[in-house]
């Protein structure tokens, strides 16, 4: 277990390097949120999910939806590292002829199960996938990563009630609770808090973890999978810009391209190539 955690930490480090390199070279993208979801994505794609990069459409695969689609540099980096497509694609992010759209596109990028980027919609799409599994005779899980800010969208709570009604036990939602949204701290922008009691009241199986520690992420995902009679939510406390200290606490990194100096500084911190 301890060795595996070390391996996952190493993969997450490489993904963070890929994220910043991709955004730096493409000259566009959202680094802050990409860095906060990296460890959750690493756990899902490199340890937990039943997927096959050689057969991205296999019908019994686990599904994943990045509801906070703007964090897609992290997803693209994870998919490339996992072998869904070449890492050479990464710097072509957002360019006209690239398979890597500004936000995830299920028809253009292998391994993307749902188009996303308009906030708040991932949980309800995931519920549809879970309901479909029942009708088509599969027992796959559907994982959704949502931001904390996007929980302000009304459709989130529509999905919360419907998933409880349908006892959607194979729906597992991870909240990337980094505390910041586009215009500032979540607690200043909205009256969203407290988050967990709301989901508990809706009848969901709820857990609270440190979203950067695999020692906590992996057991929480296991518990969520074991609970098959109701949907699960994992409130994962994360840090926007995690891994790059000068980005932490500075929300301008929500959407910002590092200068050459900043990029080299970040690579130095992460132990990446300073190309």
């Amino acid at each position: 277990m301890q060795n595996r955690i070390k391996e996952l930490e190493e993969i997450a480090r490489q993904i963070r390097i890929d994220i910043l390199t991709m955004i730096y070279k493409a000259g566009d993208g959202h680094p802050g949120a990409s860095l906060s979801v990296t460890d959750l994505l690493t756990a899902l794609y490199f340890e937990v999910m039943n997927i096959d990069p050689a057969n991205p459409q296999k019908p019994d695969r686990d599904r994943f939806i990045l509801s906070k689609g703007h964090a897609c540099p992290a997803l693209y980096a994870a998919l490339a590292r996992r072998g869904f497509f070449s890492r050479d694609e990464l710097p072509r992010l957002r360019s006209l002829d690239s398979m890597l759209q500004g936000h995830p596109d299920m028809n253009k990028t292998p391994g993307i199960d749902s188009t996303s980027g308009s906030l708040g919609n991932g949980i309800s799409i995931g519920l549809g996938m879970v309901l479909a599994a029942r009708l088509t005779g599969y027992d796959y899980y559907t994982y959704v990563i949502t931001g904390d800010g996007e929980l302000q969208e009304g459709v989130v709570w529509e999905a919360a009630t419907a998933a409880a009604k349908y006892k959607a036990g194979r729906l597992i939602v991870l909240v990337d609770n980094n505390g910041l949204q586009s215009s500032g701290p979540v607690e200043e922008v909205s009256g969203l808090y407290p988050i967990l009691p709301k989901w508990e009241a809706f009848g969901w199986h709820c857990q609270e973890i440190d979203g950067h520690r695999f020692e906590q992420i992996l057991p929480a995902l296991q518990k969520a999978r074991d609970c098959t009679d109701r949907p699960s939510l994992i409130l994962a406390h994360t840090v926007k810009g995690q891994g790059v200290p000068f980005m932490i606490g500075d929300n301008s990194w929500h959407k910002r391209v590092p200068t050459t100096e900043e990029y080299q500084q970040a690579m130095h911190i992460l132990g990446g190539p300073c190309s």
């Binding site: 299920m106 199960d113 749902s114 799409i125 519920l127 549809g128 309901l131 479909a132 559907t142 999905a159």
Partner: peptide, 8 residues
């Protein structure tokens, strides 16, 4: 959205 997930 549920319908979209089912259709997918």
């Amino acid at each position: 959205n549920c319908a979209a997930g089912m259709a997918a």
